[in-house]
């Protein structure tokens, strides 16, 4: 038996982004997609789940995520939960982890909690660790392969200099690398099973969270300024004579080589 909880985030599908007066992302207009590493985590969960196990998905975001969550049921997830509340807007990683902890507690014990290793919008990768700490369990980050070894999990973790293999006993949080697993398509069987299932919606009050614990108010970091800074044109000289080019490159290499 294993119960797996997967935390996913919807991110803007474009590379051009806009922020509002409080430096929050304008998400209204942008079309959203599941963060790429989170899709990896979803597939890892679906392939780890055994016959009696369940995969529950939780996300925090606007009501329009109901349809993409419904789609995850058709791909084989057993239960999908949407935390949605105006109070949650502008949450930093801490406020997000707080909301996820409350949802995880309410959903009942999970043997394994999977997240993507970072979202392509915020790029902090902090929520998995904060969530683990909030639940009092360990967290292993940057994992590219998970497999069962009897009652333990073998985790292949990609570090800067190589791959570390760890053996872990749940419950724990694992963050999964992008492209490690590619999310399966909806299947006929799971589509049939998904029929009649609906997206469960939690508000801040449902999770026992006060306005002070949510969103911008519940955050411990504050963006105080933001400027567009991408990417500076350098327009350096172009050399068409390879011999001269190589000579210049050599000089630059000498400058930086120890």
């Amino acid at each position: 038996m294993n119960n797996i909880l997967v935390c996913v985030k919807a991110v803007p599908a474009t590379t051009s982004v806009q922020v509002d007066g409080q430096y929050r992302l304008k998400r209204e207009g942008a079309s959203l997609q599941w963060n790429i590493a989170d899709e990896s985590a979803l597939e890892a969960a679906l392939s780890l789940k055994d016959k009696d196990g369940t995969v529950t998905v939780v996300t925090m975001g606007p009501p329009k995520l109901e349809a993409p969550l419904q789609d995850l049921l058709a791909r084989g997830c057993d239960r999908v939960v949407l935390i949605t509340d105006r109070l949650m807007a502008g949450a930093d990683t801490r406020a997000t982890a707080g909301a996820l902890r409350a949802a995880a507690k309410r959903l009942g014990p999970a043997d394994l909690i999977l997240c993507g290793r970072r979202a392509i919008d915020g790029e902090t990768g902090q929520v998995p660790g904060e969530l683990a700490s909030a639940l009092g369990i360990p967290c292993v980050s940057n994992v590219e392969k998970l497999e069962w070894e009897k009652d333990r999990l073998l985790l292949h973790r990609r570090l800067e200099t190589g791959v570390e293999v760890l053996s872990a006993r749940g419950p724990l949080v694992v963050s999964v690398c992008e492209y490690a697993y590619s999310l399966r398509l909806p299947g006929i069987l799971s589509m049939r099973r998904a029929r009649g299932k609906t997206v469960e919606r939690y508000s801040a009050a449902d999770l026992g969270l006060t306005a002070e614990q949510c969103g911008l108010k519940g955050s411990l970091t504050k963006v105080t300024a933001m400027e567009s800074k991408f990417p500076g044109l350098r327009n350096g000289p172009k050399e068409t004579d390879p011999a001269k080019g190589i000579q210049a490159l050599r000089a630059m290499l000498r400058e930086v080589q120890p």
């Binding site: 590379t15 051009s16 982004v17 922020v19 430096y23 970091t221 504050k222 963006v223 105080t224 300024a225 933001m226 400027e227 567009s228 800074k229 991408f230 990417p231």
Partner: peptide
């Protein structure tokens, strides 16, 4: 690198 944010 499209936005630089100052955070406190």
């Amino acid at each position: 690198n499209s936005l630089m944010a100052s955070i406190r």
